[in-house]
Design a binder for these strands. Structure first.
Lengths: 141, 141
DNA sequence: ACTCATCATTTGTACATACAACTTCACAAT
DNA sequence: ATTGTGAAGTTGTATGTACAAATGATGAGT
């Protein structure tokens, strides 16, 4: 059955969750080439763009809780893609050589994901929708 | 930081997930009076409306995987709110007395959730957005 | 009647995320 | 110098969900 045909197709809870799960699935597929989940990949991309970023900053930009950020970094550290340097009460996250080497592939994955989701919906509509979703999310914080 | 200000505010993955998590939070709050998570509550409401419903039907309407439906039912059974009757290769789910007694409160929670999320956004805009989200979800299946 | 494919459901396991409690450090007030 | 306060980060634990494999029942083909 399609989401639009469900009994709860007018419910925000239903719509938001269903969409998120399906987008997650598409994203997972898109980032398979680097063997990372989308969240790990986005975090790594941020660190590559701004080496030495702090967890709290990552938490802000990715809108994930600090504890989740810790867990994501832990896994990337296990994979030797980033490393943490503790400096006073701050933690700085740097990409490793291996992480840096992944940049190109990561960008390609991001582009593929974007293309895959774009081809399903008009560009303008998509952009408006994403903006609306972000606005609504802000109102819910 | 707001979602609209994030580095990834144009990314569908980001928008869909952030929104879903915040909606989940609001919904959790709304259904606290019945001490059920939103998913459990919606499942129970479906069963109350159509006693004897099968898991596969619940799976269709709630757009959750069969295994997730099993887990949800298990918990509702523990709480003595529904009971399963196995009939051949099918399973029928019925509400118990205790479940039936909860109907009114459940409906009030649903209404509260709806009101809480509605007051943040124009009715028309909201409806259009939810419809768009469902459509996009369908295209992603 | 026997076997096989199929469907509905369940079980084991894993992932993404969050909350609450804790640690550690820095800085301000005394 | 001592104490208190608060921020940054981590850890233990819990929730929601899914996938893959297993179970069990039905029905078709032989």
């Amino acid at each position: 059955m399609k989401a639009t045909e469900s009994k709860y197709n007018q419910c925000l809870y239903f719509a938001a969750n269903t969409l998120a799960r399906k987008v997650e699935k598409l994203a997972l597929e898109s980032w398979k080439p680097v063997d990372l989940s989308p969240s790990h990949a986005y975090l790594l991309m941020m660190v590559l763009e701004e080496p030495g970023l702090q967890p709290c900053c990552l938490s802000d930009h990715l809108q994930l809780s600090p504890s989740t950020i810790t867990r994501l970094i832990e896994k990337l550290e296990e994979k030797k893609l980033v490393s943490r340097i503790i400096e006073g009460k701050m933690t700085l996250v740097y990409p490793t050589e291996k992480g840096i080497a992944l940049l190109q592939t990561l960008q390609k994955c991001a582009k593929d994901f974007h293309n895959n989701s774009c081809c399903l919906i008009e560009k303008e509509e998509r952009e408006a929708m994403v903006l609306n979703m972000c606005c609504l999310a802000d109102k819910l914080s």
